[in-house]
Amino acid sequence: MRRLVIPGELVSKENKKMGTGVARKDGEIHSNQLGLLDEKENFVRVIPLSGGYNPKEIDFVIGVVSYVHNTFWKLDIASPYKSILPGGEFFRDLRGKERLRDILPIGSAVYVKIKEVTKSKGVFTTLKWRGATVLKGGFLIEISPSKVPRLIGKKDSMIDILRSESGCEILVGQNGVIWINGPVENMDLAIEAIRYIEANSHKRGLTDYVKNMLIEKRKNL
């Protein structure tokens, strides 16, 4: 079991490599956040229990267009930091012939990759990446970004089960926004399962439980 730590708590007196959520002071490592301690022989980090989304350059996120400028879209990615999708990062070359607001108006949802996070936390996203897409139909739900790794599971184990057993298309943004598309009954099922995972993310044997739950409920559809 991982130990629960509070902000300021002494985590390690040894000199270890540091991950997220920890800080070094006077040779000692302290926690920055309320979370679970992940301590290995030469590495230490704190997995936060909750909190906002901190953009990283490898992540895919789901964003909603909040404003359209002449040359770029502003995206809301459920994060404290502002995010931009430049017109040049759309799938095809627009060559300034079309207006951006006709292509993706305010309220459009997109599944984008984060291309760059600047030092001042400006986030630049792109659609020119395998998998990135404009979302049509379906529904968006939000969970805490800290629960996303559990929703995906080890080597995609959890999300694969969700996809196959609920019969829905599911895309998970690392920012905690999830897109689900499918028949209404199946979507209800998927939403229920995701909410269950969010509430019980700390439990063992969750993947098997969710699988059985989905199989049982699908029989009744």
């Binding site: 909603v64 267009v65 909040s66 809301d76 459920a78 108006p105 305010i106 309220g107 459009s108 949802a109 979302l135 049509k136 139909g137 379906g138 529904f139 968006l140 939000e142 926004v177 209404v184």
Partner: peptide
């Protein structure tokens, strides 16, 4: 939390 309401969200709630 998203501050902007996505159109697909509105369409789905309306359909339901």
């Amino acid at each position: 939390m998203l501050g902007v309401i996505a159109d697909i969200k509105k369409d789905y709630i309306k359909k339901l």
